[in-house]
Amino acid sequence: MEAQNTQLLVLDSSIRNWVLLPIVLFMFLFGILRHYATIALRTTRKNDKAKLEQAQTLARAQTVRTNANWIPHEAFLERKAFFNQPETGVLNKKIPANTLASMADPNNMVDMMKTNFATIVPNIVMWGWVSYFFSGFVIAKFPFPLTGRFRGMVQRGIELNSLDVSYVTSASMYFLILFGLRGLFSLVLGEANAADDAQLMQQQMMGPAAAMAGPGVDMGKLFEAERDNLELVTHESKLKEAETTLLNSSQ
């Protein structure tokens, strides 16, 4: 019943030339500007050798635990003893917590403010620019049908129930372009660029070595937790039947 009440539109090519392309071009150029502005605001610090060593040790222990079944049993026991030996194991080292010292460092707050400034302010500027100049435009149509539940997602700024859900407004296209430019930014600026919000979030959650070397992290508790996790691993080698599997696959 909904498909019978929808209204079909013929999109003028001028909308593509004077609305869609300017939005894409503006967001691309603004992303490049944000990338270099973030680099200029970034504070260069000397790495703490002790923290990096602790983070790398923890990452190695996690790698052994994750891939334990892909190494021989004797090799796993040797690595487990290296990390969990009661007196000499590297995960049994006593590491004093220094969370208060890192919280008292004003540079941490400054870096956080710079990151928020480089992430939030450009999005507010771009969204305000698109909303002010191009609000209410229908600029594209999906080549596939959508249900009515997607109307609020793809038709922001227009409240018209008779319009087919497959039509997209400029406000909704902004978010699609924001994520669609990720590949272009990676091609122009490289993989580790500051023009992509999702890339920045991924870098912050990229793994234990990147997150655990930061300030305010209690490495002693992380060592203790990883030591307990390594003790719970039950080694079941997946290489026992490797020769037989390889010969059967080659026949």
Rank of each mutant, 00 (worst) to 15 (best):
G148D: 15
D197N: 04
I158A: 00
F185C: 04
G207S: 02
A194M: 11
F144P: 03
S172K: 00
Q202I: 14
T147S: 10
Q204P: 02
G183S: 13
G180T: 06
A210R: 13
M205R: 14
S170P: 06
L178R: 15
E159W: 09
L184C: 00
F144V: 06
S166R: 08
F144E: 06
G220T: 02
A209P: 05
G214Y: 12
A209L: 14
V217E: 09
S162M: 08
L189A: 07
D196K: 08
S172Y: 02
F144I: 10
G148L: 04
G148N: 09
D164T: 08
D197H: 08
D197W: 09
L187W: 12
Y174G: 00
S162R: 04
M153Q: 08
Q203E: 06
A210F: 12
T147I: 12
V154I: 01
L222C: 13
F185E: 03
K141C: 07
L181W: 02
D197Y: 04
M201V: 11
V217C: 04
Q155E: 11
G214P: 06
V138K: 01
A213E: 15
D218Q: 04
Y167P: 03
M173L: 05
F179H: 13
L187Y: 13
P215S: 10
A192L: 06
T147Q: 10
